[in-house]
Design a protein around this nucleic acid. Structure first.
Lengths: 409, 409
DNA sequence: CGCCTTAAGTAAAGATACCTAACTTAATCC
DNA sequence: GGATTAAGTTAGGTATCTTTACTTAAGGCG
């Protein structure tokens, strides 16, 4: 690292000096994904020679990145010493800023959650949310027995599209004041770590892909139906962002769905556009539909679904209509992206079992490109787990670089 | 290559033995993308030392992959010897199977077309097309002064989605008999090279991205509007395929467009589904729209556009309606993918200048996510150039591996 | 119990490909 | 014609990997 210019050219990564480091990284990744293994085992699997593996593992152990993990006695021959990744080499913070709840969790490098806190969030405005996040982050870090410096990376999920250039959040329809500039910068400063803000539907997609119903899918789509309507796309394990990070903002799809009168005009800044798909498919639309079909009294989407489960005809019909509308969304998305799996999540997604049949039947009518459609398996934790997964992705190489860097003079 | 197992594990690519080879590859790529350069220049740019670069270039020249390209006299100092990629180290074949024309071209490794042939194709059925392709490939290869063995890679573009597993083409709506099994295998055998079949809209997208209007776009969408309706998506320079290679089959979008009566029932196998978007937006729909608005006589889409250019009111109105329908397509695609550029190509795309204003105005009404929309710049050659680009991509590493492989005993 | 077999792990020697430093070559400038 | 500058080469040194051969530690067996 010393003999090369400060800003090494691209080719530099191929240089011999990095070969050692690269092999160490590959061995560490192998340990992480394939579990504990002996040095001889690693040598066989990686194609490296035994002496090389021994040397690399000694260096990794020295750096605090790997550790011994017991021994195993083979059928014949000498006892093998197993090694595993040391998950305590670094920690990450995940935050889910939802309309009703703030959820925070600290996880170690293996992804194990070591502390968690859920805080009610209803009614808070932009800057109050940012302050509440900072306070809760402080508490949850302490609860994990950690200090600030132990958090290598923080990832925050929230509605809207964050624009790195202006430092503002766009399309954050359901969180008043969240679009204000400087909020993210403030949080970043307060946490004193690398912090990134992501769209909640995108993180939920990653969460569901990494630890939920989406595992192993080649092209995975997560549709978040709740207060608003969002979508996250994971292609070959990578989040699909689009040119401006706004991929999946399907609230603006001009679709041919069954008739649904627009919501009443609203003076609230940033409320869903009347007549938009978001307005026609989100939770509140289910309520409107049920009212049109004759239900009365104070209603929530949840109550409509419960009534449908009990067989109340108007509720059943309202749910069927919602299923048909959703099928149009799935059909549109499928014809563009060709996913093999669509997961329905969010408030309405919780009742996806009620919707599934209608969605599948309608889909059959609409298009020959029909992906599998299933309900979310992580429920309300999808965003939080996605935030942790995303944070781990950037934290792991960062920790590796830090701990294997040559000692400074 | 000899000391390692036949099927080397993943990590193997990091081994020292491959370091040399990798650096040679990187230097070659640098020569290819940044043009001729001296060895000292390459050393500065790549971060490798002068002796290493000299040795690598000697090996590349020996292998026939690079060659001297004149000299240059700097302001002061010794004359530098320039090197460039040797484009004659291998050739590729690109084929565009269109409804009206077969287009074939042979290009060298630099992408320069060295022979080309266009053959009328109207009225041929599946197996006749395959035979015509083989015969024309034979002729065009000979015209380039090459034999079979010189063609390293062939890429064929055609409508429909090719399924590697069954060996059949699906959704090839406008090419009767093209869905028959074994056609691709037959062509592969007849050409005696590695041959792959790709969707025509996908290849056109790659062509337009690599050498046309899409250059430099982060997320680029090409919409092919002609006999049918297709789309290709290029994200960060890579084609986006979807889980089953059917991404971009937007003929099945359930969209809310202005009214357009479905085409007359057709007994032809595989004709566009009546009432589908494909049926409502493709070239033939423009004709139907014009008839509804009062135009009569034998009409083609081209003629309607020409009439609109001359100001015939019914034609102008028909074109405006087509523009509105297209805007819905662009709006839907944009809300899912968030592209920064949409290029309109194919027969209708040729008249994109007439459509552009309407598309932009309608888009404005529909959504805040508005990508740039421009007409194709390659016209009818987009598919062919995309095929060549795709073929080059796999041919280049293949040629490199072949020519740098250690001599067999 | 000691010896054989087997497999894990280590030590020493050899190979490769890189870097640095110093040199040679070839051009311009004065 | 010599100084200067930059291209390219030669020679020597170093890091990292592989190979080969060895040591260590376990179980099986006569």
């Amino acid at each position: 690292m010393i003999e090369y210019p400060a800003d090494p050219p691209v080719d530099q990564r191929w240089n011999r000096r990095r070969l050692r480091s690269n092999n160490e990284w590959l061995l560490l990744e192998r340990l992480r994904t394939a579990g504990p293994a002996s040095r001889a085992q690693l040598a066989r699997d990686s194609g490296l020679s035994k002496p090389t593996v021994s040397a690399a593992l000694a260096a990794l152990e020295q750096a605090g990145l790997a550790r011994e993990a017991g021994t195993v006695v083979p059928d014949r021959g000498r006892t093998a010493v197993l090694y595993e990744v040391d998950p305590t080499a670094g920690y990450v913070l995940g935050v889910d800023i939802g309309r009703a709840w703030l959820r925070l969790a600290v996880a170690d490098l293996a992804g194990t959650v070591v502390a968690r806190e859920d805080v009610p969030n209803r009614g808070r405005s932009g800057s109050a949310v940012a302050e509440a996040v900072l306070a809760a982050a402080e508490r949850v870090t302490a609860a994990a027995g950690l200090g600030r410096g132990d958090i290598v990376e923080a990832v925050v999920g929230a509605p809207g599209v964050f624009d790195e250039q202006t430092g503002r959040v766009r399309y954050a329809v359901n969180l008043p004041g969240w679009g204000r500039s400087g909020l993210v910068a403030g949080m970043r400063e307060g946490l004193a770590t690398s912090l990134t803000l992501h769209n909640d539907a995108n993180l939920a997609a990653i969460g569901e892909y990494a630890c939920g119903a989406g595992a192993g899918s080649r092209l995975f789509v997560y549709i978040l139906i709740g207060t608003g309507l969002g979508m996250g796309v994971v292609a070959d394990g990578e989040l699909f962002r689009g040119a401006h990070g706004a991929a999946g903002e399907i609230g603006f799809l001009p679709l041919l769905t069954n008739p649904m009168p627009p919501s009443a005009p609203s003076p609230v800044e940033g409320a869903p556009r009347r007549g938009s798909l978001e307005d026609a498919v989100s939770g509140e639309a289910v309520v409107r539909g049920a009212r049109m079909l004759g239900m009365s009294g104070p209603l929530s989407a949840k109550q409509v679904f419960e009534a449908a489960r009990e067989g109340v005809p108007a509720a059943v019909a309202a749910v069927r209509q919602e299923g048909e509308r959703l099928a149009h969304v799935v059909a549109a998305v499928s014809s563009v992206l060709d996913p093999d799996l669509v997961v329905l999540g969010g408030g309405v997604g919780h009742s996806a079992d009620l919707l599934q049949q209608t969605v599948e039947d309608t889909l059959h009518r609409l298009t020959p490109l029909r992906p599998r459609v299933t309900p979310s398996s992580l429920g309300d934790d999808a965003v939080l787990l996605g935030a942790i997964t995303t944070a781990l992705r950037s934290a792991r190489p960062k920790v590796f670089d830090t701990l294997t860097a040559p000692p400074q003079t």
